[in-house]
Design a protein around this nucleic acid. Structure first.
Lengths: 140, 140
DNA sequence: TTTTTAAATGCAACAATGTTGCAATAATAG
DNA sequence: CTATTATTGCAACATTGTTGCATTTAAAAA
């Protein structure tokens, strides 16, 4: 785990008034180093000596404070990704799409060329969730 | 439970070479009568004297054969809806959007005026999953 | 630096959701 | 109507996530 991510994590936690505990720093560093959205199973593997409960509580805290978000839930595994600055304690603000590559299994946050808009007459759309499965650029 | 749905269910099951067992007919009839996507919790309530395991196996069988699909999974509850004819044993073919109304909690399959298209350069998109949360026409 | 104090951790126990093996039962083909 | 094969119900297990509480840790105050 690189120092770079470690310091970065501490900064993020301070910004959101969360105590910079070992587990929180580890989780953020891990996801940050992972580059793409990281499946819970991998996070658990890497933090095998951390209590299961603590990890759940840590993830919930980071979710609530808008530091990470669930990028994909595919029944078996849930993927977590770091949030952008626009996410806050009160609301997640994502205009990206979660893309899962069925070759390398990686989940990434992608920004489509044109913003996705959907409208049905008579409906008020508050939030739109778009996820896609396919083959990513590297695997194609 | 109306006879209409009962007969309809039997027909669907025969088409897909599934035995027309009581539980299967009940599940299809229920969802059919419910009109919109039905949460698992309600299905369980209605079939309270059916074994938990049997219900799970029934739902899996219907999912696999393309008779129903998961319309929405919101952590707490999973919503099931009947499939259109275009769904088969091999693949689900849906071009609709799952819309959850946060007032009445109903989940419906909606067909937007223009088909949703997303493209990122270099990516091959196989399937796109779009869900929306907001307020439906009746509640607005 | 040491003390204080409020929050986070680890543990045990629990809860919810889903799965497996197997004997009993029900649906359909003959 | 009988034979055959899939489905059912039960018990037990597996997985995933949660709660209460005593102990430990982070960071603010002295």
């Amino acid at each position: 785990m690189l120092k770079k991510h470690h310091e970065y994590a501490k900064g993020l936690l301070k910004e959101r008034n969360l105590k910079a505990t070992t587990t929180r720093i580890q989780v953020i560093s891990l996801i940050s180093a992972y580059k793409t959205a990281m499946p819970l199973s991998k996070i658990q593997q890497s933090l095998a000596n951390t209590d299961r409960v603590t990890l759940y509580r840590t993830l919930n805290a980071l979710l609530e404070k808008g530091l990470i978000h669930k990028a994909f839930s595919s029944g078996e595994d849930t993927y977590y990704a770091l949030c952008s600055d626009s996410c806050s304690t009160h609301a997640h603000q994502h205009d990206h799409i979660h893309f899962k590559c069925k070759v390398c299994q990686m989940v990434t946050c992608e920004y489509p060329e044109e913003k996705v808009v959907v409208s049905f007459p008579g409906f008020k759309v508050d939030s739109l969730n778009v996820s896609a499965v396919g083959v990513c650029g590297r695997c194609a």
